[in-house]
Simulated scan of single mutants.
Amino acid sequence: MPVNNLYILGIRGLPAQHGGFETFAQQLALYLTARGWQVHVYCQEPGPGATIYSTWRGVRRIHIAVRQGGALGTVVFDWKASLDATSRSGLFLTLGYNTAIFGLLQRLKGQTNLINMDGVEWRRDKWGALAKTWFWLNERAGCWIGNHLVADHPQIQEHLATRVSAAKISMIAYGGDEVLEADAGLLAAYGLEPGRFSVIIARPEPENSFLEMVRAFSAAPRNHRLLVLGDFQPERHPYHRQVMQAASAEVIFPGAIYDREVVQALRFYCRFYLHGHRVGGTNPSLVEALGAGCAVLAHDNRFNRWVAQDAAAYFKDGAECAALFTRLLDDDGAWQQMRAASRGRFVQRFTWPRILLEYEQLLNHWYPKHP
Rank of each mutant, 00 (worst) to 15 (best):
G19C: 07
A25E: 05
Q27T: 03
A29C: 08
L30N: 08
Q44M: 14
E45Y: 09
G49D: 07
T51Q: 12
Y53W: 14
Y53T: 10
S54I: 01
W56H: 08
G58F: 11
R61F: 00
I62R: 01
I64Y: 04
T74A: 07
V75G: 00
F77Q: 02
A81V: 03
L83V: 14
A85T: 07
F92Q: 05
G103R: 11
L104W: 13
G110E: 09
L114M: 08
L114Q: 07
R124Q: 10
A131I: 09
G146S: 14
L149W: 00
D152L: 00
I172W: 05
G175V: 06
A184T: 12
A189G: 09
P194N: 11
S198Q: 04
L211M: 06
V214M: 10
L226S: 04
G230D: 12
F232M: 09
Y239K: 12
R241G: 04
A247T: 03
E250K: 03
D259L: 12
R267E: 07
G293N: 08
A295Q: 11
L297Q: 01
R305W: 07
W306P: 00
V307C: 07
D317H: 12
G318Y: 03
A323D: 13
F325A: 01
L329D: 01
D332P: 00
R343C: 00
F346R: 03
Q348P: 00
E358R: 10
P371R: 12
